[in-house]
Amino acid sequence: MEENILEIKRLTKHFGGVHAVQNLSVVFARGAITGIIGPNGSGKTTLVNLLTGMLPMDGGVIVSDGATLRRMRAHEARFYGITRTFQNIRLFEQMTVLDNLLVVLTERRVFASLFERHGAYHLKKAEALLRQVGLWEKHNELALHLSYGQRKLLEIARAIGTDARVFLFDEPFAGLFPEMREIVKRQLEALREQGAAVLLIEHNTELIRQLSDYVVVLDSGKLLAEGKPESVLRRRDVLEAYLGE
């Protein structure tokens, strides 16, 4: 693989007696899409929650650009250049589409944000992002009034707007029409070209085959297989665990 941007070593998380993630060690490369697949309950979303500090780790470390982290809090994810979308869409529902984007483009410091009005620069960037995903015409509508697919696209635009280096996309294609899938594909490929590390959780193996440079297969929270998609997706143990064949 190319230069690593994010690495996890012996990452562990359990809920009571259930081991959601067990001693998982994986590296994610710059300028590559890493597909993460596995049956339901294999720990994919838990992994994303751990990487973004939405769940505390029980063991192991995250290595981000050379910094070794034994604890990650949610607000620190941006500092380490990590952003995400959610399997169950989590937008700021009763805010406009534009405001959903401006929130990630504007000032983070409390006092400075009090004296900041979004300017032409922010608007221009928000407009460009919304045009990228075909939502500019909806920019004054409340997020809750968007269709399911549009909501997914807005979440993706919001993640891209953060200028992160590591993007965690949790089933971004689920429930999308073909035209919308093409838009999402283009965004992921553009991020790869820009040198970002993209983690793609996806159930559709055809999409994984098309988009991924590397595939990680999880089963019961453990690493089952990893490697190039053409070889991993042919392995018997992967087919048995993931496809039930």
Binding site: T52, H75, F92, Q94
Partner: peptide, 22 residues
Amino acid sequence: SSFGRVLMAIREDEQALQVFGY
């Protein structure tokens, strides 16, 4: 202000907002 927009985002989904560095 941007501060006011953040307040509304807290109201909508505080944990999701934290992931964006707040």
